[in-house]
Design a protein around this nucleic acid. Structure first.
Lengths: 243, 243
DNA sequence: CGACGCTTTGACACAACTCAACAACCGTGG
DNA sequence: CCACGGTTGTTGAGTTGTGTCAAAGCGTCG
């Protein structure tokens, strides 16, 4: 799947250098891959599943279903992300996870995970760091939905997505592929699909961003950041001073 | 501070039994306490702080500041909760944390934390479990703000708060003390303070819940749960089958 | 005492939702 | 082959939930 280094290895290296043994361990973890068809549900809210996944390729979404039938998408994991760590610890999963496109994932059982943490403590810290970054993204998302207007929120979302994809080499400065439907965007942004459409039109008319045929093009990044109130993610590509 | 067992010990016991050594370790961690005056800021967004805190007594809130001056409160930590674990891992804190009432906290340095994790691996797992629970609460909060109406959201918030407080013995089935202002509620719920006031009036007129003089009284829990679409927190007081 | 913060209420404005209709694009099956 | 239903995107018109502005009552505290 991944040519020389996997997305996960690339990401964890942002936290600090990895030893050969650690890289080998990560490679081994990802040696088993499962192909998942678009639409399949890997984690179901309320289920007692005990497997986490490393996403290798493709797009998915983790979300919560509400009683009234609505849903809130929490995040769109991208290649290199770990999914379901939380459902391993809590006995029943508090959220669902489905494939939005065909996906390739590597399952990691809970016992294997503990074993890795014991054998490579530094790797455990790296993964904990990655988890903290994900959590920070969720928190930012919360702030977005709670306190930003629909347009700001949407702009912010695409800027953040662009950054995340860039870290794993899936976006350049102006463009990236984004297989999401406006419906899915709506469930992520806490809006109606129709309003998402209007917001996208607005951003297009402002010559800031285009979302067309599942390609996102950022025409004026600086202006978009200003509109969204976007601040670069801290603790990201910051290099460790020692080690 | 805490008479026989601390709030933290009580909470972690929900995950699984603790050995005497583990309890002793937790007690020792909380042997140093700092008194914090209402209004003091312990963590500042953007700062490079490397200390986490165990909240012993009092109320605080962790929140994000937005560029336009608005703020979004992420959660109100209550006694027994750990705060700032994430800012220890990411090099700069992505959120702030201030005291809403006078507080008592125990600081835990990052090195001390790692040391504990090494010496008592099971304790590390317990704390990781508690962290996962907190994250699940944040995710639920996200779903609330994104997909529930102001009234549902408010009802849900108080139900959840009531559960959390009950776990550490700070609430009974019908009542609990809650020193939050309507302004703080608004920043947590993603509403304006004025609308919070209207929503509270509505809940009072429906004879479901009263928020008066910083005492929350739940008059009809079942009806309130139905209105909020509240589902009990999974993975909470569930007992481990083994060990 | 006055100043300030918190709560409460009313009138009004506006952002976002709903409903409805249509166009474009599938994959499917007659 | 074309007809067909289903999904996604697009747009308009009208509604509604929530925010904004303004003002007043009430504690508390200096």
């Amino acid at each position: 799947m991944s040519p020389v280094t996997s997305h996960l290895v690339a990401k964890l290296k942002l936290f600090g250098p990895l030893s050969e043994g650690e890289v080998a361990c990560l490679t081994e973890l990802q040696s088993v891959t499962i192909h998942v068809a678009r639409g399949r549900e890997l984690l179901s809210q309320g289920e007692k599943g005990h497997v986490a996944y490393i996403l290798q390729a493709g797009w998915g979404c983790s979300f919560k279903l509400l009683e009234d039938g609505g849903r809130q998408i929490i995040t769109f994991p991208i290649p290199g992300d770990c999914v379901g760590l939380r459902s391993v610890l809590l006995r029943t999963s508090d959220h669902s996870f489905t494939a939005l496109t065909d996906m390739v994932v590597s399952p990691v059982g809970s016992s294997r995970m503990l074993q890795v943490f014991n054998e490579f403590p530094h790797l455990g810290a790296s993964i904990l760091w990655a988890t903290s970054r994900d959590e920070a993204i969720t928190v930012e998302h919360l702030a977005s939905i709670g306190r930003r207007t629909a347009t700001e929120r949407t702009a912010h979302f695409f800027l953040e997505l662009s950054e995340r994809l860039r870290l794993v080499g899936l976006a350049n400065t102006t463009e990236f592929a984004c297989p999401l439907s406006q419906n899915e965007l709506a469930d992520a942004l806490g809006l109606s699909a129709i309003h998402v459409n209007r917001v996208l039109r607005g951003l297009r008319e402002l010559q800031l961003l285009t979302f067309h045929e599942h390609i996102v093009t950022i025409h004026d990044r600086a202006a978009l950041k200003a509109l969204a109130g976007y601040e670069d993610i801290e603790g990201g590509p910051v290099l460790m001073s020692n080690t």
